[in-house]
């Protein structure tokens, strides 16, 4: 049986990890490569790197980082942030990234999803969606949650999957940073209405939250950042707990 995946997420700025990390056994907490190696050894199933600056000047730094990550870990990883063209993707995949994630650029130009999946295959195109629950609906937000759209998340998911998105990374802005659990309602809705895997993101605070994302949210994977960075949850303990909860997990 396919295992549920645990995915630490690293926010990158100018080639360094931001949002702080709190590890004793890591010499340089800001070095994404060192952190990536650590998580990989801890049993992370996959990693996501999000370039939060994502300016053109930083693309070279990001590419160099991807090369270093690929040389040092051998689990799959996704790179996102500011990807707008076939060339952007080609450079990242050739540097060793397994998947790339699109967000605002795909919403503004949905054809990009079709072009990229046609060229590189759906399996490496992750669509990231930031969504917020307002007036009884889940809406898509752009530009890192700064710009609201009138599009419902579920409608955008359906369109994007038809165009060739191979995976959905769904972040609930209502839950992100609250440590009160994942947004299981929208995650379940998306998961049950799409043919591709769904990664739940935003709200992880304890181990039960991960179980709930899989059991109630029907998520295929769960992503978190700070609970891992600050060692509030350690991956080996989390995986042991989930396995005890009868969830298929790779240990």
């Amino acid at each position: 049986m396919l295992a549920k995946r645990i995915i630490p997420c690293l926010d990158i700025k100018d080639g360094r990890t931001v949002k702080g990390v709190n590890f004793e056994n890591i010499k340089d907490a800001g070095d994404p490569v060192e952190l990536a190696v650590f998580y990989s050894q801890q049993g992370a199933d996959e990693l996501v790197f999000l370039d939060i600056t994502a300016t053109n000047e930083n693309r070279k730094t990001l590419t160099e980082l991807v090369l270093r990550v690929a040389k040092n870990i051998n689990i799959p990883f996704t790179v996102g942030g500011g990807i707008r063209s076939i060339e952007d993707v080609s450079v990242l995949l050739n540097s060793g990234a397994d998947k790339i994630s699109l967000n605002t650029s795909a919403f503004k130009n949905p054809q990009l999803i079709a072009d990229l999946s046609g060229r590189f295959g759906s399996q490496c195109i992750v669509l990231a969606i930031d969504t917020k629950f307002e007036n009884e609906e889940w809406y898509v937000y752009l530009n890192g949650g700064k710009v609201k759209t009138e599009t419902r998340a579920i409608d955008w998911v359906k369109q994007a999957v038809e165009l060739g998105a191979g995976e959905i990374l769904l972040t609930s802005m209502n839950h992100d940073g609250t440590k009160s659990g994942f947004a299981n309602t929208i995650t379940k809705l998306v998961s049950e209405n799409t043919s591709v895997p769904v990664i739940a993101s935003g709200g992880a605070g304890n181990m039960e939250h991960f179980r709930d994302a899989f059991v109630y949210g029907k998520a295929d994977a769960a992503l978190a950042a700070s609970v891992f960075h600050f060692k509030e949850i350690e991956i080996p303990a989390l995986k042991k707990y989930l396995r005890e909860q009868k969830i298929e997990i790779r240990i």
Partner: peptide, 12 residues
């Protein structure tokens, strides 16, 4: 039951 395609992840 609905099957997700592609299969993505760790399997035995």
């Amino acid at each position: 039951n609905k099957i997700k395609v592609p299969q993505v992840g760790w399997n035995k």
